[in-house]
Structure formats: structure tokens, C-alpha cells
Amino acid sequence: MPAPVRLVQRVAELFGLSRQEAEQFIRNGWVSVDGEVMERPQHRVDAERIELDPDARLEKIEPATILLHKPPGFDAIDGPRPAAALVTPAIRWSDDPSGTRLLQRHFHRLTPLVPLDTEASGLMVLTQDGRVWRRLVEDAALIEHEYVVEVRGRIAPDGLERLGHGLAFDGRILPPCKVSWQNETRLRFAIKDVREGQLRGMCAQVGLEVVSIRRLRIGRIGLGKGADGAMPAGAWRYLPVGERF
């Protein structure tokens, strides 16, 4: 019986491909071993059935960026309950409009970006893409975020104006932002460079107690809407190739 060989070698031999082409097909999830997709070119095979998807295309291997609707109680960056643990194939949003094929390699070495309070919910970003990392880290102070903040209490007479301009938090004067009432109990903030606890602190300074916080948008990228409404808490979708924050 011949010794087992690497999958990339067997695929190249079976389908008349170069090693580079065979590896690209495997990494992009186009090759199955006994009916199961195998994305590791170094996987060793013997007499297993090797199939190449008839729709297989030689494509550039793009790093993934995942947009998660973080539920309250999970830690966005550091902490004992990492939101990153929620990102599994089973909870991908059924209305994901990206058209991206789900691959196991998309769940490896995902870096969570853009802090969000543990008790807040809403959009957070996890990426394998250095370009996305640089944009969201190096340009963080330039990117506008949109939040809906549910509050209770009686706002100070000049409270809305002060929320927009004139408050300080954690020893720094806050830059101007846009604040408006969405309804009687919800404020909408369009704001840049938000620090941990800042929205709660701002609201407290004008007599309001925060009940909940939800981030709707980071730059030009929102949670997303489908046939049944916005992407639900706990679900995730891919950032489509070509879309920018």
C-alpha cells in the first residue's frame, strides 16, 4: 500500500494542477475528502475519495472581517466573557448579504477591535485584515460611531446642548458631537473617539441614568438589515470585500 501523501500533492496529481493552484483550491474550501471539506493542504490522505467542486474558481485568498451584534454582558476586547467566542459557523446571520462563502479559516486569529462597554450591545468588529486593523486603530479618533442610549430621569434644562458640546470626561474636554431625542426615552449619539464609560458619564452630568446602550454604526458600516429587520443580537455577518469603514 502506498504511503499517505499530502492533500495538495494528491489534488495536483488528480486534477492536473500546479502545487500552487491545488493549494489555493484547498484553502478556499473547494476540495472535499470523503465528502467533507478540507482546507488544510498538508492533511495526509491515502485511499480517501478526493473531489474538487465543479464550481471551483482560482480566487485570491482574502482575510475575513466579521461584524458581530454583541449582546449585553460580553466583553468586546478583554475580559472573562469574550464576545469573540460567539463567532461560530452556527450563528452566522441567515440574511448575511455579503455573499462570502463560509470557511473554517475565517475563524482563526480574529482580532477584536473598537471597544464597547461590557453591558452595552451592538456592532463590534473582529478581523484578520491588517488594513482594517490600521483603519480602526490608527484612525480611531476620526471615525464617527452611532449609538442609541435609553435613559431615565429628568434632563437638565440645557442638557441636550451640553451633551453636544461642553462636557468633560475622565480629565479631558470632549469634542462636539451630535445628540438628538429619538423618542421620549432614547437619545441618539453620533460621536467620535468614545472611551469606556463615557456615554454613561455624559448622561449622568445632565441628570440622566443610562438604562441601555446599543451601537448601530461604526463609520459607514452599520449592523445591517435583512428581510426580518436588523441583524439580531448574537448573530454575525461578513464585511463584504470592498466595503470600508
Rank of each mutant, 00 (worst) to 15 (best):
L102T: 11
I91Y: 10
I61S: 10
R217L: 00
G166W: 10
Q9G: 09
R92Q: 14
M124E: 02
L136V: 05
R186P: 08
V45M: 11
A227P: 01
K70L: 07
F15L: 03
D193V: 02
A156K: 10
Y147F: 09
D228R: 13
G171A: 02
T185R: 14
K178F: 08
V179C: 07
G166I: 00
P157K: 04
I143R: 08
D78V: 11
I155A: 04
D193R: 11
V31K: 03
T88S: 14
L199T: 05
G122E: 07
D193M: 05
I66D: 01
V5F: 07
Q198W: 03
G234S: 08
R195I: 09
P240E: 04
A12K: 15
R162T: 01
A3T: 10
S212P: 02
S18R: 10
G242K: 05
W236C: 00
A227D: 13
M202W: 07
F169V: 11
R195E: 12
P54K: 03
G166H: 10
G197T: 05
G99L: 07
L160Y: 03
V179N: 07
V114R: 02
A141K: 15
G171M: 03
K60S: 12
V210L: 10
G226Q: 09
W236E: 04
I221M: 15
D53F: 08
L103N: 06
W133R: 14
C203E: 00
S212G: 11
R105M: 05
A230I: 11
V211N: 09
T185H: 14
G229D: 00
S94T: 09
E21V: 06
A141S: 15
V211A: 12
E150H: 11
C203F: 03
L102W: 10
G207E: 12
T118P: 07
R195M: 14
G35F: 01
K70S: 02
K60G: 08
D95H: 15
E161A: 14
M38P: 00
M124R: 01
C177D: 04
V114C: 13
R220G: 10
L102Y: 08
R237M: 08
R19V: 01
V132N: 05
Y238Q: 04
W30R: 00
P232R: 10
A85P: 09
G197Y: 07
D34Q: 07
A204R: 14
L167F: 02
C177V: 02
G99W: 04
A76L: 00
D95M: 07
G219T: 06
Q128G: 10
E62M: 13
I173K: 15
F245G: 12
R105A: 00
K192T: 12
V148I: 12
S98P: 04
G29S: 02
V33D: 01
D46L: 09
I155C: 06
D117Y: 09
A141I: 06
A230H: 12
G201K: 12
N28D: 13
G79P: 01
G224F: 04
F15T: 04
G35Q: 08
H108T: 15
R131V: 07
L142C: 11
E36K: 14
L136P: 03
T100Y: 05
D139A: 13
R6Y: 00
R27I: 11
D34A: 06
G242Q: 07
E146Y: 02
V45T: 13
E119D: 15
A140I: 07
K70F: 06
G153C: 05
L216E: 15
L17F: 08
H69W: 12
L17V: 09
A141Q: 13
